[in-house]
C-alpha cells in the first residue's frame, strides 16, 4: 500500500483513477490516467508513476514502458511555457525549419530541451491543421501563423515580459 504522505499528495490522482478504472481490463485506462497526471503535475515523475502502479496494480516497469513509448509523455520537468514549431509537411515546405533555427539560436537550446531559467521548453510538433497559415509556431495554446524568422525575437520578448509581470 502507498505510504501516507503520497496518499495525501496524490489524493486527486487516486480519485481520478477510481473514476476511470475498469476492473475487467485494469490497464486500459492507463493512458487516460497518465494524461491526467501529466496535466495535473506538469510531468510524470518517478513518484507519480509509482503511485499509479500502486493504485492500478499495473507493474511500474510496464508503466515506464508505456510512458517512454509515447512522445507526449514527459519524465522531466518542463519549462513554464511550451514553444512548438510545426514540422508538418505544409509548414516544412513553407519554411518551418527556419523558424526552428531562429528559436534555437535565440534560446540556445535544441528541441526537447528547456531553458536554464525554466521559462521555455522547445519542441517540434506535427501538423496542427492550420496549414493554410503555414509556417506555424505555438506558445502554449496560442497559435502564430505565417511566421517569419525575424518575428521570433518579438514573440519571445512578449512572453518574457508576461512572465516577468507575474
Amino acid at each position: 500500500m502507498a505510504c501516507s504522505c503520497c496518499e495525501n499528495q496524490f489524493d486527486d490522482l487516486t480519485q481520478y483513477i477510481s473514476g476511470v478504472f475498469d476492473p475487467e481490463h485494469p490497464q486500459s485506462s492507463l493512458i487516460s490516467i497518465l494524461h491526467h497526471a501529466q496535466e495535473r503535475y506538469g510531468y510524470l515523475s518517478k513518484d507519480v508513476i509509482e503511485h499509479i502502479a500502486q493504485v492500478t496494480e499495473v507493474p511500474a516497469a510496464e508503466i515506464y514502458g508505456v510512458v517512454t513509448f509515447y512522445s507526449l509523455f514527459k519524465t522531466k520537468p518542463q519549462g513554464k511555457h511550451r514553444i512548438s514549431v510545426c514540422m508538418g509537411t505544409a509548414c516544412y515546405i513553407r519554411g518551418g525549419a527556419k523558424i526552428l533555427e531562429a528559436l534555437e539560436d535565440m534560446l540556445d537550446i535544441k528541441p526537447g530541451e528547456t531553458t536554464e531559467d525554466m521559462l521555455f521548453t522547445l519542441s517540434e510538433t506535427r501538423c496542427i491543421g492550420a496549414c493554410g497559415l503555414a509556417p506555424i509556431m505555438t506558445v502554449d495554446d496560442k497559435v502564430y501563423g505565417r511566421v517569419e524568422p525575424e518575428q521570433v525575437k518579438g514573440i519571445i520578448a512578449e512572453w518574457r515580459e508576461k512572465a516577468e509581470k507575474v
Binding site: 496542427i128 492550420a130 496549414c131 497559415l133 496560442k142 497559435v143 502564430y144 501563423g145 505565417r146 511566421v147
Partner: peptide
C-alpha cells in the same frame, strides 16, 4: 475551427 485564427493567433 481550431485553425481559424489570424496570423497573430
Amino acid at each position: 475551427g481550431s485553425a481559424c485564427i489570424d496570423p497573430g493567433g
